[in-house]
Design a protein around this nucleic acid. Structure first.
Length: 925
RNA sequence: GGUCGCAUAGCUCAGCUGGUUAGAGCGCUUGCCUCACAUGCAAGAGGCCGUAGGUUCGAGUCCUACUGCGACCACCA
């Protein structure tokens, strides 16, 4: 036996020690090739990231599942890794360069990418080390990064296959452009936000009658420079005669037609709509329909670009005033000039949605550029089907609705990005064939959409068309989420037919937050079905967001961020994990307050002290032998033993049930309740009598029950609180125990079998008897506390009631005496002259006191109790006399009510007796 | 504009398929350093389960409307 354990659990010493031991002994790797697999892939955090509450929750839940399944005999694999996070990472490195006064353009593509790799090597996997502090049992030997050579190969394979299958195309389209990141974004990468803006009413004079004109309303006056038409509704009487005429575009002088299109809302603004096909999605569609020119008025930073106006009115000198002005400056100038020309009719306040870049919050600009698109519709169908037919289960189910809604009207996915950090698109253009297109092969310029790409894994040696050998690779890289979409199988070795893929795909569960349901989950499903022919995971568990205690999203700018590492250092990782699990109710956000964590730290400490008690009274396993539950079958168990074992059996059932249905909070609460309020509060207290010989039963037997139950608690808790449970487990095993063996040697708590429900231990009789006794104890404690009796003072009680109940209590008198601190118990005797009274079941309890009792107060208290019970009884009786209730309710419900009725009657009778006795005593006054 | 979710004790929340006296943690009040634990022990106060209807023998639990929050989606200038 080692030196006595400290009174307070010192988490800091314990955590690092065990994590290293587990890791070195190979416990994190799959080690049961013959068993059923259970696999997960981590949602890869950004390499740039550092651990925040969202990661902590996400990975705690995953680890709970993994540890549970590992203990339960599965062949468990949890693949860790990181995401290269294209735009986000590039932004971080660019900021660092900026501090040294450098831009990426100055460095050039190659050197810039080198910089990113260097940065990643230095700080890149910090987050994975932070995750280790959480205790996650990932298989670090299989760590992956989306830019690994093998994963990059998977990306190329996927890209080429999609191209060959006609699911990928390149086209000149209006896309969302971030003028700060200078790249295209996918639709979902634009965050819409309502803002208070203005509606400017602009007058465009008619070409052949400048005195007349048409007034259009717009939120973006600066785009008028690119207008190529004005549209009105075909049935709009106000404008019908103008259709077919032309207007003179102010400032620019362009001659543009007035067209009719039913898209126009007659009720909005003036009913006349300026059409800017180059900078508005609706206008683009209308432009396509009517064959209008699309003028791109901006450069890639959303500044007025003269090149766009060639032959479109850019010849006159107005352009000199506008060239290189950014959007907002151009807007001011347009408004100012129109006002000066008397063409600004009015300005009204207008609330509308503004799209911003999800990475840098810059207002996005619809921008006409050649981009790569994935044709998503053919992929979405099977992905919807997989969820609909249950091959993939979404938990909680509610999220399936969002999934269907989004997948149902999904648009083609723009996957090209004009940044450098990422998987460069495996497409090459033959200089010979595309000579005209590639002429302006200047730095950063787009390769026109009409250029013909050769799409393949490796650079082509010869052009299949002309035999030329000179190529230029497409400069774009792929959307980060393109590689993320392959994660469940690329990490397992795809496109190779690897053993891991055969064993662990489809993965079992994906645990993630709802914020990336569309970004990631939906796309993994589509790609998994496309490339693997099977779903990427069988269950998706979607957890909530962690917010601060006011319900605000945690963010650095608000300064309300709680740092998980600081929390772990302060309260212990187990307490932190327990808190997260306890608060992870299905479908609700988590508002995290620090005192909750402190509360669960107390729980961990309570468990620790229960262990100290058990060890002090039992010694180690070598001395006592088998400490398994089943070994207790041979023991002569007393009522308390049977009770705790019965309660334990129920706790096991509840815990497993909760885990199997992803109800982590139920699991945590169940174990908290059982450990603290049943095992510690009652069983340990009762066991003290046996241990001291007061009951005449075996102290050694009691020690073994104490140990066996604690052992089960530790096993049940291990998935939530891995560190303290290992520390306790080893302490229970005794001196010399060390984990240095392979997992199969089962030295660690990590690989013990998870407790299984054994209905054989359920003991209704013991539960009823101890339950009754404990209620009596509580009632007596209540009476004692009412008169401020010191806990140390022992008193006598007189009990009066049915033979059956008194028998029960007599049987448990030692417990009664010890737990309620009684000097003596008298059964059925004449109640004392002056006493406090209470009723439990049909038993009257009298706590005699020498003349200090406030009889009036007591009478009033009892009268209140009588009223309450009487009212309750009345309700039950009414129910029971209702014929419809008797006819329609389930028999068990009726039986229950009848039982209740009887109990209430008995209690009421007893209460009346007590009350009468008090009244008798009052009478002489 | 569309869709979805939430409103239960002072605070944060459980309450899964309708049927015990509606629970927990924290906080609060009172008394205790009782030989595992003061990160503790014991006792207690505190709730017309958002409002109004409806379904049902029976509703915190199902339906409808309303009110108040919140989230997601959306190209109406």
């Amino acid at each position: 036996m080692k030196a006595e354990l400290a009174k307070v659990y010192a988490h800091a010493d314990v955590e690092q020690k065990w994590y290293r031991v587990w890791s070195e002994a190979g416990y994190f790797q799959p080690f049961r090739p013959e068993a059923e697999p259970f696999s997960m892939v981590i949602p890869p955090p950004n390499v740039t990231g550092s651990l925040h509450m969202g990661h902590a929750l996400n990975n705690t839940l995953q680890d709970i599942l993994c540890r549970y399944k590992r203990m339960d005999g599965y062949n468990v694999l949890w693949v860790p890794g990181t995401d290269h996070a294209g735009i986000a990472t590039q932004n971080v490195v660019e900021r660092q360069l900026a501090q040294r006064g450098l831009t990426r353009a100055q460095l050039g593509r190659e050197r810039f990418i080198e910089q990113v790799w260097a940065w990643r090597a230095e700080a890149g996997s910090a987050i994975l080390h932070q995750l280790r502090a959480l205790g996650v049992s990932c298989d670090w030997s299989r760590e992956r990064f989306t830019m690994d050579e093998k994963l990059s190969r998977a990306v190329r394979e996927a890209f080429v296959t999609l191209w060959n299958d006609g699911l990928l195309y390149r086209a000149q389209r209006l896309i969302n452009w971030c003028p700060r990141c200078k790249t295209a974004l996918a639709d979902i990468e634009v965050v819409h936000e309502e803002v208070d803006g203005h509606l400017w009413h602009l007058r465009y004079p008619l070409w052949d009658d400048p005195q007349a004109g048409v007034v259009v309303a717009t939120t973006r006056p600066e785009t008028m420079l690119g207008d190529t038409a004005v549209a009105v509704h075909p049935q709009d009487e106000r404008y019908q005669r103008l259709v077919g005429k032309e207007v003179r575009l102010p400032i620019v002088g362009r001659r543009i037609p007035i067209i009719a299109d039913p898209f126009v809302d007659r009720a909005f603004g003036t009913g006349a709509l300026k059409i800017t096909p180059g900078h508005d999605f609706n206008d683009f569609d209308i432009g396509e329909k009517h064959g209008l020119k699309k003028i791109s008025i901006f450069d890639d930073e959303a500044r007025i670009a003269p090149e766009g106006f060639k032959g479109e009115g850019g010849e006159s000198d107005w352009l000199r005033r506008y060239a290189a002005k950014d959007r907002f400056a151009a807007r001011e100038l347009v408004v100012q000039e129109l006002a000066a020309a008397g063409l600004l009719e009015k300005v009204t306040p207008h609330r509308h949605a503004l799209g911003r870049c999800y990475r840098c919050q810059t207002v996005v600009e619809p921008y006409l550029t050649p981009q790569w698109f994935v044709r998503v519709k053919p992929l979405a169908g099977p992905a919807i089907e997989a969820v609909r037919d249950g091959r993939i289960r979404i938990v909680p189910e509610g999220w399936a609705n969002s999934y269907f809604a989004w997948m149902g009207d999904i648009k083609d996915w723009c996957v090209s990005r004009q940044i450098w950090w990422g998987h460069q698109i495996p497409a090459w253009y033959c200089r010979g064939c595309n000579a005209a297109c590639l002429a302006g092969d200047a730095h950063g310029a787009f390769i026109p959409a009409k250029a013909k790409p050769v799409v393949r894994h490796e650079p082509p040696a010869r052009c299949p068309e002309c035999g030329g050998a000179e190529f230029v690779q497409d400069p774009d890289v792929l959307d980060t989420w393109f590689s993320s979409a392959l994660w469940p199988f690329s990490t397992l070795g795809w496109p190779e037919k690897s053993a891991d893929l055969a064993t662990f795909y489809p993965t079992s569960v994906l645990v993630t937050g709802f914020d990336i349901l569309f970004f990631w989950v939906a796309r993994m499903i589509m790609m998994g079905l496309k490339f693997m022919g099977d779903v990427p995971f069988r269950t998706v568990y979607i957890h909530a967001l962690v917010r601060d205690q006011e319900g605000q999203k945690m963010s650095k700018s608000k300064g309300n961020v709680i740092d998980p590492l600081a929390v772990m250092a302060r309260y212990g990782t187990d307490a932190f994990r327990f808190t997260l699990a306890a608060m992870a109710a299905l479908g609700r956000d988590i508002k995290l307050a620090e005192d909750r964590i402190a509360g669960y730290q107390s729980f961990i400490n309570k468990l620790w002290n229960a262990t100290r008690f058990v060890l002090m009274n039992s010694g180690n396993v070598e001395r006592l032998g088998d400490d398994s539950l089943s070994s207790l079958r041979a023991e002569k168990l007393n009522l308390a033993d049977r009770w705790i074992l019965s309660r334990l059996a129920r706790a096991v059932r509840a815990t497993r049930g909760a885990l199997d249905s992803y109800r982590f909070n139920d699991m945590a609460h169940e174990l908290y309740q059982f450990t603290w309020h049943e095992y510690c509060d009652w069983y340990i207290e009762m066991s003290k009598l046996s241990l001291s010989g007061a009951l005449g039963d075996s102290a050694a037997k009691t020690a073994r029950v104490l140990r066996a139950v604690l052992r089960e608690i530790v096993l049940l808790l291990h998935p939530i609180a891995p560190f303290v449970t290992e520390e306790i487990w080893q302490a229970l095993r005794g001196e010399g125990a060390e984990i240095k063996d392979a997992p199969s040697a089962k030295a660690s708590v990590m690989v013990q079998p998870y407790p299984e429900e054994d209905p054989g231990w359920i003991d209704e009789e013991a539960e009823a008897k101890i339950g009754f006794m404990s209620e009596v104890v509580r009632a007596i404690r209540n009476l004692r506390s009412e008169i401020g009796l010191p806990p140390a003072a022992e008193v006598k009680v007189v009990l009066s009631g049915s033979d059956e109940e008194l028998g029960l209590l007599r049987e448990q008198e030692p417990y009664l005496g010890a737990l309620a601190r009684l000097s003596a118990v008298e059964y059925g005797g004449e109640p004392p002259k002056s006493a406090l009274t209470a009723v439990v079941g049909s038993t009257e309890i009298y706590l005699p006191l020498a003349g200090t009792v406030d009889l009036d107060g007591e009478a009033a208290r009892l009268a209140r109790e009588v009223d309450k019970i009487a009212a309750e009884l009345e309700r039950v009786r009414r129910k029971l006399s209702n014929r419809e209730f008797l006819a329609k309710a389930k028999p068990q419900v009726v039986a229950k009510e009848q039982e209740k009725s009887q109990e209430l009657e008995e209690k009421l009778t007893a209460l009346h007796r007590s009350l009468e006795k008090i009244r008798e005593l009052q009478a002489p006054v």
